[in-house]
Amino acid sequence: MSQQVFKSALPLVLESGEELPELEIAFTTIGSLNPEKSNVIWVVHALTGDANASEWWSGLIGEDKFYDPADYFIICANLPGSCYGSTSPLSNNPKTGIPYYYDFPQLTPRDLASCLERLRKHLGLEMIHTLIGGSLGGQVALEWSVELGKKLQNAVIVASSAKTSPWTIGFNETQRMAIESDCSWGEHSETAGKKGLETARAIAMLSYRHPADLARKQKEVGEKLDHFKASSYLRYQGQKLAKRFNALSYWTLSKAMDSHDVGRGRGGLKKALNQIEAKVLAIGVNTDLLFLPEESQQISANVVRGTYKEIISPAGHDAFLIEYQQLAYLLKSFYLEQS
């Protein structure tokens, strides 16, 4: 695995009209380009993911897995706004010499796609075989698919949407309210909002799971008045994320997810999706409560060459990260249908 950082001194004008005066993108690559440079698999991570796709998607990417580095050149970049090496609220603002903190500009999935496009050009990759992402990563991948045109052969959009629903925005807003309620929020510190982030993650976990899945996995034995398994589970998940992630980045990227609308400035959702020239596989999860299967179906129905497939799982939204066998089967079927 190769881990690198791309640095660009050119300002990036954002959808909001603000700009990032400089840009750094941390990224990893595994595998090698073939002579034709036609074997590029570009992976886009979800909200709290990082550039190490072979770790968080280990059942799909790696030696003897579906995307084997012996056959493919696999790249994954840490999205700007995140706290794993790319430009983020904790980065120094070159105009002031101090970290951005709360002055970090608003980002949208389209802005994030523009960042990835700048990296693609830097790497000299003229063709992407497959662009794949789930959740927020799927939103970014969909935006980029519109812009890539003939430079993209296949787009795989997993458990995502063409426009963020009020339901999803509502979940994200409650999480940001939890961060705001932390008395340290507003401080110019890397740890600002850390306790609030724990609560935000607990709220998020309820949207990532299905009630039946929680009922099965957190089932109580005997009768209780307190100290329930579900309570301990959510507290643990909140503490676990707060140890590795940052509240400012969480705030920034959840806001980016809220702003997602592939049809903005393109004549509406249907017209925008119709511009995508790549073959598109939209994958939904039958129990997903955050991004409903109908939202994936909407994508496949409005692109020129779209296919819809569904993961059947009790796990809810997070099934896209754990149902490797089903994902591999759906991907194999998608590619075979083209041959």
Rank of each mutant, 00 (worst) to 15 (best):
Ser2Arg: 15
Gln4Arg: 15
Leu12Ile: 05
Leu12Tyr: 09
Leu23Lys: 09
Glu24Ile: 05
Glu24Val: 07
Glu24Gly: 06
Ile25Met: 13
Ile30Ala: 05
Ile30Ser: 08
Ser32Ala: 13
Ser32Asp: 13
Leu33Glu: 13
Asn34Cys: 10
Pro35Phe: 11
Lys37Leu: 15
Asn39Trp: 07
Ile41Ser: 11
Ile41Phe: 04
Trp42Tyr: 09
Val43Lys: 14
His45Arg: 07
Ala53Lys: 13
Ser54Cys: 14
Glu55Ala: 10
Asp64Lys: 15
Asp64Ser: 09
Lys65Tyr: 08
Lys65Gln: 15
Lys65Ala: 08
Phe66Ala: 09
Phe66Arg: 12
Tyr67Met: 01
Tyr67Gln: 15
Asp68Leu: 01
Pro69Ser: 07
Asp71Gly: 03
Ile75Ser: 02
Leu79Gly: 02
Cys83Asn: 05
Cys83Tyr: 08
Cys83Met: 01
Gly85Ser: 12
Ser86Asn: 02
Ser86Thr: 02
Thr87Ile: 04
Ser91Thr: 03
Asn92Thr: 02
Lys95Ile: 01
Tyr102Val: 00
Pro105Cys: 09
Gln106Asp: 03
Thr108Phe: 04
Pro109Gly: 06
Arg110Lys: 11
Ala113Met: 07
Ala113Asn: 10
Ser114Gly: 10
Ser114Gln: 14
Leu116Ser: 13
Leu116Gln: 15
Glu117Ala: 08
Leu119Asn: 05
Lys121Cys: 04
Leu123Arg: 12
Ile128Lys: 00
Ile128Thr: 04
His129Arg: 10
Leu131Glu: 10
Ile132Pro: 00
Leu136Ala: 01
Gly138His: 11
Gln139Trp: 03
Val140Lys: 03
Val146Gly: 00
Lys150Leu: 02
Gln153Arg: 00
Asn154Val: 01
Ile157Pro: 09
Val158Ser: 00
Ser161Pro: 00
Ala162Ile: 00
Lys163Arg: 03
Ser165Phe: 13
Pro166Ser: 11
Trp167Met: 12
Ile169Ser: 08
Thr174Arg: 06
Arg176Asp: 03
Ala178Gln: 03
Ser181Gln: 07
Asp182Glu: 01
Cys183Ile: 01
Thr191Gly: 06
Ala192Gln: 10
Ala192Asp: 08
Lys194Ser: 09
Lys195Cys: 00
Ala202Thr: 11
Met205Ala: 02
Arg209Phe: 11
Pro211Thr: 08
Asp213Ser: 09
Lys217Cys: 09
Gly222Ala: 01
Leu225Trp: 13
Asp226Gly: 02
Asp226Glu: 12
His227Leu: 06
Phe228Pro: 09
Lys229Ile: 04
Ser231His: 11
Ser231Ala: 12
Arg235Lys: 11
Arg244Val: 10
Phe245Tyr: 15
Leu248Trp: 07
Ala256Thr: 09
His260Ala: 13
Asp261Asn: 10
Gly263Ser: 05
Lys271His: 11
Ala272Phe: 02
Ala278Thr: 02
Ala282Gln: 04
Ile283Phe: 08
Asn286His: 14
Thr287Cys: 13
Thr287Lys: 14
Leu292Gly: 13
Glu294Ala: 07
Gln297Ser: 12
Ala301Phe: 02
Val304Ala: 14
Lys309Asn: 02
Glu310Pro: 10
Ile311Asn: 05
Ile311Val: 12
Pro314Gln: 11
Ala315Trp: 13
Phe320Tyr: 10
Gln325His: 06
Tyr329Asn: 13
Tyr329Trp: 04
Tyr329Thr: 06
Leu331Arg: 03
Lys332Trp: 09
Ser339Asn: 10
